[in-house]
């Protein structure tokens, strides 16, 4: 009859069980506790709502947009219109609906953030853990390379890469990714140094595990939380760098509704037609703030040293 008893146990009790009966239960339990502490932080929740909102807007952009983001209306009559019932956020200098462009621009923003993360995080993690675990000359070489990348201001380095690769959104993503990984490598290395000499690593090594296996299965998972926190906090920076490149004409090419490029094209009208540059500016502000708040909240939850 124990089985029945366990089934009547509520989901909450199962998750908070002090003696989990399986690894899965333990994992879910941890996740649930993290979520509980995150949800107690209202600012982090606000950030989460913004980020989830961004993802939803990007997914349903076609349904949410009222007009085409690329093809404008009549240049003579629908250009630079103020916000109205027909054009919620007004129209730009090519008579395009700014609201629809913002909605479609969220896809670009999300794409940039995700791709940069996907490229930069594994690279940083790998370099950092290898350097930290191997030590010696390999550590020195990898960390000096990291130092070289860190020595340049990020936007300047990204600018140099884009100038070399040619303007375009793909190249902007590559350039930002190239400039984004060094901090992750630093953090991963620092974490690795603190755990490489611990007993459980020694135990794994005594059991005959190879170096790659130790790094991949035992060190990386422990470095991951702090790197994730750092990446989330960086996302605002990534968005701003992408917007900066777009503003300078080196990111997305027209007519792509990239937010930074939209601000750049609205700049010359800012005194008389404030909405053209302001709306994408607000969008960048809200999304960057959202990522920052979420990152802060995640740090409180995931960082083992800060916790309790």
């Amino acid at each position: 009859m124990t089985g029945t008893f366990e089934r009547t146990q509520t989901l909450r009790e199962w998750l908070t069980d002090n003696e989990p009966s399986s690894r899965t239960q333990a994992r879910f339990g941890r996740a649930y506790l993290s979520w509980r502490s995150l949800s107690r932080n209202p600012l982090a929740m606000l950030g989460l709502i913004v980020v989830v909102g961004l993802i939803l807007v990007a997914i349903f952009a076609d349904q949410l947009a009222t007009q085409s983001p690329f093809i404008g209306g009549d240049l003579r009559t629908e250009r630079l219109q103020p916000p109205s019932a027909e054009h919620w956020l007004g129209t730009d200098s090519q008579a395009r609906d700014i609201y629809s462009r913002l909605v479609h621009g969220s896809r670009l923003t999300l794409m940039i953030v995700v791709l940069v993360t996907v490229i930069a995080m594994p690279v940083g993690l790998l370099i950092g853990t290898v350097a930290g675990y191997a030590g010696g000359w390999l550590d020195s070489v990898l960390m000096r390379i990291t130092d070289i990348f860190l020595a340049f201001p990020r936007l300047i380095l990204a600018l140099a890469f884009v100038a070399a690769l040619g303007p375009g959104i793909e190249n902007a993503i590559i350039a930002i990714a190239i400039t984004a990984w060094p901090p992750y490598a630093r953090i991963a290395r620092a974490e690795t140094l603190t755990i490489r000499n611990s007993d459980f690593i020694a135990a794994v090594r005594l059991q005959g595990a190879s170096t790659p296996r130790i790094i991949a299965r035992h060190i990386m998972p422990l470095c991951l939380p702090s790197v994730i926190v750092r990446v989330t906090l960086d996302m605002a920076g990534i968005i701003l760098t992408a917007a900066g490149l777009g503003f300078l004409g080196l990111g997305a090419q027209p007519p792509m509704p990239e937010w930074g490029a939209m601000i750049a094209s609205g700049r010359q009208y800012i005194i008389d037609y404030w909405w053209v540059a302001t709306m994408p500016g607000i969008a960048i502000f809200v999304v960057s703030l959202g990522f920052n708040l979420l990152g802060d909240g995640l740090r409180d939850v995931l960082d083992p040293k800060a916790a309790r």
Partner: peptide, 10 residues
């Protein structure tokens, strides 16, 4: 030039 370019693009 960019303004004209975008209009021509359309």
């Amino acid at each position: 030039i960019t303004g004209m370019g975008e209009a021509i693009q359309q």
